[in-house]
Amino acid sequence: MSTREDIGNDGDAWPRLRQDLGVILWCSFLAACFATMLFFAIFDPIYLKYDDDPPSWLADRRTGYALGFFFFWLTTAVAAALTAWLVDTRNRGDSTG
């Protein structure tokens, strides 16, 4: 561990698509972590039920946390991907029309 060599398994600059994917997934992950923390600090997942008895699979809070987290991640990733795509393509109309 005393030296650093050969960092970057292949040191090539990332292709554009991989850069975009990395940015989208990572930023949406951070936002989802933040949203999950805020949301579940206020709402206890076992009370997130639509009728009197929670479904049995929701009885374990860990299921609620995990579903909440992936729901937030999916939502933020869609927003990030759409934003990236719209920002990337916004001037194309001008140049062709």
């Binding site: 005393s2 030296t3 650093r4 060599e5 050969d6 960092i7 970057g8 292949d10 040191g11 090539d12 600059a13």
Partner: peptide
């Protein structure tokens, strides 16, 4: 044009 990054190992006080 497309540089490959093969960082060389170093040792020294900041690495320590």
């Amino acid at each position: 044009a497309q540089r490959k990054i093969h960082p060389r190992e170093v040792s020294g006080r900041f690495n320590n």
